[in-house]
Amino acid sequence: MSTVQTSDLGVIPATLVESQRRRSAAPTGDETVATGPPPVEIRDLTVAYHERPVLWDVDLTVRPGKLTAIVGPNGAGKSTLIKAALGLVPVAAGWVKIFGEPFAEQRRLVAYIPQRGSVDWDFPTDALDVVTMGRYGTLGWFRRPGKRERQIAMDKLRQVGMADFARRQISELSGGQQQRVFLARALAQEADLYFMDEPFAGVDATTERAIVELLQELRSQGKTVVAVHHDLNTVDDYFDDVALLNVRLVAYGPVDDVFTHANLHATYGGRIGFLSGGPAETSAAVAD
């Protein structure tokens, strides 16, 4: 078992970033993982709210063992893509398969981190209890979480550097700490595929580093991560693959291949019309 703990958050991730650059630049040997069916296979996916298309004809096969970012402007359907994959929104056409089967049959293999702002953090519960919720899926109806579930939850809290906050009421946690609790809950699901909706939104620098390290660790264990991401500047540093989305899928592949001016222009449209440079300038224009 890997013992890479994220408790030593003082480490500046420059080295990590460096190693990741190398990783994405050189063709990696990770392909050995890709023997089974793909972790996420989306075909002809169309989702509409009130008959207005939010996603149109999206085809996407996520590479296993990779960190994939979903990037695009506001209203591009990024969160909807994840929610559709999880069966949280009705689908107008097309299908999604998770490791070769419909999601409903593969729930145990999937972990989900909703947007942090989607819950009421004044809810009467503590960090450990929230992480324990990650075990509810395997517990079944009526059964209460016991010692074993709490033990797993505690381990996951430790893994995100939050062991000392286990009994802290969740409203007393900072934004970054709350995000870590959500991460720990996803880890407690002990899944092979992780869907994350804006994991880096509104977190502090320390937490951002911790999340990056955690993503690395998940990848080193052969897990697949699909995350909605907002900051074009860091896509290159944090992720292997990127899916550019604006209702339709504009491009998908390794970050270096996909982040071309033409692709970004196609994704963000006129909103980056003035720029001539690469993604670094782009983010200034599309930051919301």
């Binding site: 169309t46 509409a48 009130h50 107008a92």
Partner: peptide
């Protein structure tokens, strides 16, 4: 309205396919 929109939407799905 919904019926009209749904018809149009279904048609665009068909044409696109």
């Amino acid at each position: 309205q919904l019926f009209t929109v749904r018809r149009a939407f279904a048609r665009s799905l068909l044409l696109s396919h």
